[in-house]
């Protein structure tokens, strides 16, 4: 329960943080610390240097730019929940943040840390997939934009490059005819998902123009259930189609068995969460 020895540096700006990452071998950024510090206390991770990015103001805050919401990587879960911009323009993020961990963790844990950490149990990666978000990353070579779809490669493995920092997340505002749904099954307060599923649906009249069904904690990383989406896209969604999609969700799952359940249970729960989210999203899209 006591981490190995490490050095601590406080970064003053994004550039300073990038420089320090370069200067200290194997160093790690410290955001909210609620994934990193537990791993260090268990000595699963022993980074020699921590670079604290909590003091960098440019990494915080939520602003609206036209049809896009820009969320600083260091914005905490509780700030997401309390944001009027999100409540109005992106209810999915608010709902998802409410179901992350417990109030203490949400006070410090950040959306950026949650997205890049790489634990398949983290909620935000799947939410970013469903929202079709864009990640703004900055490294020694400058800034680049990367779609969330394609960023997550495996457990503790993503497309973040050496000495790169996630600076901002960009998500589209919800429009007329679009609906969000989020469902997460957990054993108790403060637990990671047994299975979770954020869904975004776009309707054209009664027809599903597009749908994104993402899944949390039922594969090595957050995934899209594309076969399930294909069942529904271009159709008038009814119960029978939802059941077909649910069967595709089960087929898409590749969870690790643990105390939360075996492969069968987790896959079925993913399907159930998807069902619930699809229904909720449809209801919202229909207005």
């Amino acid at each position: 329960m006591i981490p190995a020895e490490f050095e601590y540096h406080k970064a003053t700006s994004i550039q300073d943080a990038i420089n320090q990452l370069g200067a200290h071998e194997d160093s790690k950024l410290l955001a909210g610390g609620h994934s990193l510090l537990p791993m260090m206390k268990l000595r699963f991770a022993e980074p020699p240097t921590l670079i604290d990015i909590n003091g960098i103001e440019e990494l915080r805050g939520i602003r609206l730019e036209g049809d896009t919401i820009c969320i600083g990587a260091m914005t905490t879960e509780n700030e997401l929940i309390e944001s009027e911009i999100l409540q109005q323009h992106c209810p999915l993020l608010v709902e998802a943040a409410r179901l992350v961990a417990d109030p203490q963790v949400r006070n410090r844990g950040t959306i950026g840390g949650d997205v890049v950490h790489g634990d398949p149990g983290n909620d935000h990666p799947a939410v970013m997939l469903a929202l079709d978000a864009t990640l703004v990353l900055q490294g020694p070579g400058g800034e680049r934009q990367q779609p969330a779809n394609g960023f997550f490669l495996g457990t503790y493995w993503n497309d973040l490059q050496e000495h790169e920092i996630l600076v901002e997340l960009r998500v589209p505002v919800i429009r007329q005819g679009v609906g969000h749904g989020y469902s997460k099954l957990k054993r108790k307060t403060g637990d990671y998902a047994v299975a979770g599923s954020p869904v975004v649906v776009e309707l054209d009249g009664d027809v599903c123009r597009d749908i994104r069904i993402a899944l949390t904690n039922v594969a090595p990383m957050a995934i899209r259930a594309e076969a399930a989406e294909n069942v529904l896209r271009g159709k008038v969604i009814d119960d029978a189609l939802i059941e077909q999609a649910a069967a595709e969700v089960i087929a898409a799952c590749d969870p690790a068995e643990d105390l939360r359940g075996d492969i069968q249970y987790k896959s079925h729960m993913a399907a159930e969460m998807a069902r619930r989210s699809i229904r909720a999203a449809l209801q919202q899209a229909r207005g």
Binding site: K188, T189, G190
Partner: peptide
């Protein structure tokens, strides 16, 4: 409803943290 101390075949105790070991809060 939730407490148990499961062991695997090698005698490893699974679930010896409060993430797994069920201690209910007011919510539950």
């Amino acid at each position: 409803m939730g407490q148990e101390m499961p062991f695997d075949e090698q005698g490893n105790l699974l679930g010896n943290t409060l993430m797994d070991y069920f201690v209910p809060t007011f919510v539950e």
